[in-house]
């Protein structure tokens, strides 16, 4: 197999009010199907550890499952396990109406961390980032400036952002500019 590289190969920006880091290779699988189907729930639990509730993300170590829409989940696994996981899902769900696709190399993942991470995120997405409105465990698909993105909190002051790989550089520049020194908003 060819040598897999992530969108920005771990680029980082740390000279501002928050640290922005591209997280490198992540395994991601789009799973579409009937999310109330027992067979599907069982398969998701086997792969990602837990089944997420609506608009939530269920994380277990490096693995996780995020609720994307009524009929879609985003499963996160280590990058090297992605292909194997798709095979596992294909055999576990054989006979039901579903789709499991390895989208690892079509995505870029970023982490925004630091005490002003909320400020940085709130500048870019039309979402309420107040500490009591956006909490750990929530998963939100929205847009950041001009591109679609999904995000959740990985820690008390850290956010993870997933976007299309094709706009990875745009997203990194965007987050870096929003995290410039002296650009604190101090609303939260």
């Amino acid at each position: 197999m060819s040598n897999a590289v992530s969108a920005l190969q771990g680029a980082a920006f740390s000279d501002g009010i928050a640290e922005v880091r591209e997280l490198g290779l992540r395994g991601m699988i789009t799973l579409r199907g009937d999310l109330s189907d027992k067979k599907l729930i069982k398969a998701v639990k086997a792969v990602a550890g837990a089944m997420p509730e609506q608009r939530k993300i269920a994380l277990k170590g490096d693995a996780g499952a995020a609720w994307m829409s009524l009929d879609e989940l985003l499963l996160m696994v280590p990058h090297s396990d992605a292909l194997g996981t798709v095979e596992t899902l294909n055999s576990a769900l054989n006979g039901t109406h579903f789709l499991a696709a390895n989208v690892s190399d079509a995505r870029a993942v970023f982490e925004v961390s630091g005490p002003y991470a909320r400020d940085v995120m709130a500048k870019l997405a039309p979402v309420d980032f107040a500490p009591d409105a956006f909490e750990m465990g929530m998963f939100r698909r929205s847009r950041m400036a001009q591109v679609p993105a999904a995000f959740w909190m990985s820690d008390e002051d850290a956010f993870r952002v997933v976007c299309f790989r094709s706009v990875g550089e745009y997203m990194f520049d965007l987050l870096s500019v929003a995290a410039q020194t002296g650009s604190e908003v101090d609303v939260f």
């Binding site: 608009r55 829409s69 009524l70 979402v127 929205s142």
Partner: peptide, 8 residues
């Protein structure tokens, strides 16, 4: 009404 998100 599908995902329950209130957005602008």
């Amino acid at each position: 009404p599908c995902c329950g998100v209130t957005g602008e």
